[in-house]
Amino acid sequence: MSTIKWKTPVSYLFLTLMALFFLMPIYLLLVTSMKSVAEVSRGDIWGLPDRINFDSWRVALVGSRAAGVTALWPNFLNSIYLAVPATIISAMLGSMNGYVLAKWKFRGANVLFPLIMFGMFIPYQSVLVPLVQLLQKMQFGPLKLYGTIPGLILVHVVYGIPITTLIFRNYYAAIPDEMVEAAKIDGAGFFRIYSSILFPLSVPGFVVVMIWQFTSVWNEFLFALVLNGNPKVQPITVALNNLAGSFQVDWSVQMAGALMAAIPTLLVYILLGRFFMRGLLAGSLKG
């Protein structure tokens, strides 16, 4: 009994210290972004701002010719134009694949599935140059795929197939086969079974997959860097890295930019944390 007594306060103390460690960067991010340039360069970094000041937010958002900062807002929009369609298409595709693999097992599926899964783990450096070469050649009328947002959507959808398929396959596997068999006997076909049995039960699965995809597409960097180098079509991760690459940009502006890049996924996390967790666990295969 006595051991329990001292253990609880120590646990709280430990957790609180760790929480401080985890929150420290966010604290610094927030206070720095709200300080004036003069205050930051004076070297008083850790204190609260003398006076709350949103100048750096404005500079990060709309840019400033004097400070040599290009606006991040268009890139923020690019990220939305990129992540939202990529997420929806990925989820639809993953749902269909998961349905086929879970309920319409065919010969060779046991070999095929791990082969698809492997795509989830490859270092994307190993496909980069062929990807540039192929996308350059793919052009549908006025729709070019290299250096455009639709092109990057395609890339994220393709490389998102493994994870979305995995999550949906595992999800649908939990739905008893008997339900599907019964529907077949009733004469329901492939699409009917999907739309009347699987899809209605899929909402949580969709939420998990969409959160996962949205977060990874929003946060992705390498593909965007190589495929969407044109500032007009850069997502925010690349634009932020650019901003930070220019040393003459003030720290307060960099922090404001970082905040902009982090807010959407943080919102998703805060609002839908439970599903976020499930996505994380599912992402590790054995779940």
């Binding site: 609880t8 957790l15 946060n219 930070a244 960099q254 943080l266 996390y269 944390g273 994380l280």
Partner: peptide, 28 residues
């Protein structure tokens, strides 16, 4: 413990941000 959910949320939130944001902030 009490407040387990709060602590869990705090420890897990960095997962939601991109490595680019992490890198920019930690360089600072």
């Amino acid at each position: 413990l009490r407040a387990e959910g709060l602590f869990r949320t705090i420890f897990l939130f960095p997962m939601a941000v991109s490595f680019i944001v992490t890198g920019v902030v930690w360089r600072w």
